[in-house]
Design a protein around this nucleic acid. Structure first.
Length: 291
DNA sequence: GAACCGTGGCT
DNA sequence: TAGCCAAGGTT
């Protein structure tokens, strides 16, 4: 149960301070919103912006993407990271054409059935593209609510069901206003109520924030386990995929061998990429992006 | 629930 | 500089 009204000050702040992002434009299509949400999964806005503009110019509708090769989606993904998202976005477009007449579904349960669309993204699309009232809970919102409502320095481990109920309680009844509140919470978490250095003096919720009221300080240490990258299979997969992205046709295994010294790890990474559908073996010992 | 899945900018 | 960090999803 919400003790304070967080929505009103958050929306007022958002109206005055929100970034002008193209997927928030009234002209943005549901497809544009969906593409932005997938690209923004774990990738910062600054890197998504140019990729989104290119992507939408090339594939303005799900049908356009579905008609192209999945490998082209992986290529256009560039260095946004987690390239399986590109493959899933392509599968998503195919499913939208096959099952939804080429239109992004507006129903959360139908969105959840699409590949690569989980609890957050499904509700984000329903709220931001279709202006529905849904709790949209990302890492920013979880942190904001943990602080402002629960008085904790940070959100604990994700407990999706509980998070959804807690955030739903904070939303106004009227759907359009609820959708604006959701994007306002996210923006506030991204720009003001940040993980390490929250700018409380600029926060519209400072008067009602329970963590602020407690007078406690943010713990110094890391809030989650560091994720090693150098030397992992993920790095090797990335190096291999970079070779395939930048070549027009299939490449021989020898072109892949040069990216990493350890043959065992190279093999594991390449096998994994093929298993994931990100790479295809064509002919003998030649590899390419999936056609 | 934990591990895995990329990448580059920032401190 | 090495580690932290960024609008998650899937297994």
């Amino acid at each position: 149960m919400a003790v304070h009204d967080l929505a009103t000050p958050a929306v007022a702040w958002y109206d005055a301070n929100a970034r002008d992002l193209p997927w928030r434009s009234p002209d943005a299509t549901p497809w544009g919103v969906l593409v932005s949400e997938v690209m923004l999964q774990q990738t910062p806005v600054s890197r998504v912006l140019p990729a989104w503009l290119d992507w939408m110019a090339r594939w303005p509708t799900p049908s356009d993407l579905a008609a192209d090769a999945p490998g082209e989606a992986i290529r256009a993904w560039g260095r946004l990271g987690y390239p399986r998202r590109a493959l899933r976005l392509h599968e998503c477009a195919v499913a939208i054409v096959a099952s939804h007449g080429g239109e992004v579904p507006a129903d959360v349960d139908e969105l959840l059935r699409l590949p690569g669309i989980g609890a957050y993204t499904a509700r984000a699309v329903a709220a931001f593209a279709y202006r529905q009232r849904h709790p949209v809970v990302d890492t920013n919102v979880r942190r904001l609510v943990a602080r402002a409502v629960a008085g904790l320095p940070d959100a604990g481990p994700t407990t999706t069901a509980r998070d959804l109920v807690a955030v739903a309680d904070l939303l106004p009844t009227e759907p359009e206003l609820a959708a604006r509140t959701s994007v306002a919470f996210m923006e506030l978490g991204a720009l003001v109520c940040t993980a390490r250095s929250p700018r409380c003096t600029d926060c519209p919720l400072v008067a009602v924030c329970e963590f602020r009221r407690s007078g406690a300080a943010l713990p110094a240490g890391p809030t989650r386990r560091p994720q090693r990258y150098a030397g992992t299979d993920r790095q090797v997969r990335g190096l291999i995929l970079a070779v395939l992205r930048t070549s027009t046709g299939p490449v021989p295994r020898t072109a892949i061998d040069v990216v990493w010294p350890d043959a065992d790890q190279r093999h594991r990474a390449l096998t994994g990429l093929v298993a994931d559908g990100l790479v295809r073996e064509v002919g003998s010992d030649r590899f390419s992006l999936p056609g």
